[in-house]
Simulated assay, not measured.
Amino acid sequence: MVRATMMSKQQIAELVEIARRDHTLWAALKDRELDQFNQDGSVKIPSISILVEDFVKERCGASHNYAIGSLIVALRLPIRQELGLPA
């Protein structure tokens, strides 16, 4: 197994800004933040982690080795603020 590389704070900040300008991605992330389940109780696909992983692959290449957890947290904060949810 290959060890993941942590993103720098600057990388994360840049990716958050790029994601905010991608209206389709931002809307999907906001939707998942509000409710991760469909009306029938099934999980919405793609999930937040899949959306972010695909976004990072698009920006950094399919063979990137970045851990995306910190980016997910950094994305969720402004999304929750926009939605009026507790941070």
Rank of each mutant, 00 (worst) to 15 (best):
V52F: 03
L25D: 01
D35V: 04
Q39H: 07
A62G: 08
Q81T: 15
Q36T: 10
H23Y: 03
P78Q: 12
A67D: 09
A28H: 13
T5N: 10
P46N: 06
A19V: 11
N38G: 03
S49A: 10
V43S: 10
A87H: 07
H23G: 00
V16W: 11
H23V: 02
S63D: 14
R3Q: 14
L34M: 11
A4K: 15
R32I: 06
E58L: 02
P78G: 12
W26Y: 07
F55P: 00
L85T: 00
Q10P: 00
P86Y: 13
V52R: 01
L25P: 00
M6K: 13
S42T: 15
P78D: 10
E17Q: 15
Q36D: 12
R80Q: 15
L77D: 11
A19R: 04
D40N: 15
E53V: 02
G41V: 06
E82F: 07
I48G: 01
G61S: 04
I50F: 08
L71M: 05
Q10E: 15
L83S: 13
Q10I: 13
V16L: 06
T24N: 02
Y66K: 08
E17C: 13
I45V: 12
E58G: 03
T24V: 12
Q36E: 12
D31F: 04
A87N: 15
I72P: 06
A87F: 11
Q39V: 09
R59L: 02
N38M: 07
D35G: 08
I45C: 02
R32F: 06
V16N: 11
H64T: 02
E58A: 03
I50Y: 06
T5L: 10
L71Y: 01
G61W: 07
Q10N: 11
A67T: 06
A87R: 14
I50E: 11
E17V: 02
P46C: 07
G84P: 04
S70L: 05
K44H: 04
N65T: 11
Q36P: 11
S63V: 10
R76M: 15
D22F: 03
P78T: 14
P46A: 07
R80V: 11
L85N: 01
S47W: 03
K57A: 05
D40W: 07
L83H: 09
I72S: 10
I45S: 12
V73C: 10
P86E: 15
I72G: 08
L83E: 13
A74C: 01
S47D: 12
K57M: 06
D40P: 07
R21S: 01
K57F: 01
Q10A: 13
R80S: 12
D22G: 02
K44P: 03
V2I: 15
I50P: 04
Q81I: 14
P46M: 08
V56W: 00
E17F: 04
R59V: 00
N38K: 12
V2D: 13
